[in-house]
């Protein structure tokens, strides 16, 4: 395996452990917003999509796939963050 892959594996495994620690104690009330919020974060593949979509000046097959990917990921990101905010707003509202 290349050094780059090893490095990436280190990052992945350590970030997973960090994830378990960060999210371990969440009250049930927040389970749905946590899920849709983390779902929005998984739309981070938009970064990969942008790199592929921008890889050529001509709209060849790769670029088209990349653009499709950008659309899907952006729906995921924008929809996810907005709907999470909508939910959390409701939780806020009735505490006031």
């Amino acid at each position: 395996m290349s050094e780059a892959l090893i490095g990436a594996l280190f990052v992945f495994v350590l970030a997973s452990f960090a994830g378990f620690e960060v999210i371990n104690k969440v009250p049930p009330t927040l389970h749905t917003p946590l899920m849709s919020g983390s779902n929005a974060i998984s739309g981070i593949s938009v970064i990969g999509a942008l790199i592929v979509a921008g890889s050529d000046l001509n709209p060849n097959f790769s670029v088209i796939l990349g653009l499709l990917s950008v659309i899907c990921a952006t729906i995921n990101v924008v929809g996810g963050f907005l709907v999470t905010d909508r939910m959390l707003q409701m939780f806020k509202k009735k505490e006031a």
């Binding site: 990052v11 992945f12 495994v13 970030a15 997973s16 994830g19 378990f20 946590l34 983390s38």
Partner: peptide, 8 residues
């Protein structure tokens, strides 16, 4: 980010 979401 992917690992965080995977864990959660």
């Amino acid at each position: 980010a992917g690992a965080l979401v995977g864990a959660s």
